[in-house]
């Protein structure tokens, strides 16, 4: 169970102050597939970063399975990120200088999994996502759909409970986007909690529940 209570995030610069999240209260059940919708700059990505432990709250509380994430030390926060969370980004966030295989392998390296085991896991997920043939290709030389599959394979290979997707279909055409959503539904079937940020109504329709964010607040 994920719980945000009066969560606030303010970005402060020398001459400005921006309220990205404004007293957000949100509960996400375990194994739920949630879509977060909102216009650009509404605070969707900030919300996702907070949920993934990539950023910190300036106000309020963030609780994950009863653990107050906003009170964790940096080391424990990193542990939380390493073990519990997987990210899928709009621009795929693949490392151009690593092959598809190596990209998928990266979180497994972080988890300290042995080489043999890593190879099995990566190959299994590449197979599952239909990108086995791209093993030694570099991301810039494969299509957007294939890149996003690689990113999903990377997120799945990690075996995390919580998958955070930031506009996963944003850089894909309609057909690829739909294919991708099928994969998300498969992931959901694997008992994963998915939080997906999107501003596409149709894509959001794949989720069990849709939450709308306007000006840093949860509207509905």
């Amino acid at each position: 169970m994920i719980r945000l209570k009066n969560a606030g995030k303010i970005y402060r610069g020398e001459t400005f102050e921006t309220k990205a999240l404004d007293y957000v209260n949100l509960e996400i059940k375990t194994n739920e597939f949630l879509a977060v919708m909102g216009s650009s700059g509404s605070g969707k990505t900030t919300l996702l970063n907070i949920l993934g432990g990539m950023d910190f709250l300036t106000e309020g509380e963030y609780e994950y399975d009863g653990v107050k994430i906003n009170e964790l030390s940096e080391n424990r926060l990193e542990k939380f990120r390493k073990e519990k969370v997987a990210f899928i980004f709009q621009q795929f966030a693949l490392m151009d200088r690593y092959t598809v295989f190596e990209n998928i392998e990266m979180p497994l390296l972080a988890l300290g999994i042995k080489k043999k085991e890593r190879k099995c896991i990566v190959e299994e997920h590449m197979e599952k996502l239909g990108i086995a043939a791209l093993r030694d290709k570099y991301p810039p030389y494969i299509s957007g759909g294939q890149q996003q599959r690689t990113a999903i394979a990377r997120a799945l290979a990690k075996g995390s409970e919580l998958i955070l997707a930031d506009e996963p279909t944003g850089a894909l055409d309609k057909k690829c986007g739909e294919e991708l959503m099928e994969l998300f539904l498969d992931m959901h079937g694997m008992k994963k909690t998915i939080v997906m940020v999107t501003h596409d109504e149709k894509i959001a329709g794949y989720a069990e529940r849709v939450v709308r964010v306007c000006d840093g607040k949860v509207c509905s």
């Binding site: 080391n75 990193e78 990120r81 390493k82 073990e83 972080a110 990690k158």
Partner: peptide, 16 residues
């Protein structure tokens, strides 16, 4: 920066 961000997102800690 981007690469490091990805590494962090993949679970590699800053210490690592």
């Amino acid at each position: 920066k981007k690469e490091l961000g990805i590494m962090l997102a993949c679970g590699i800690t800053k210490k690592e």
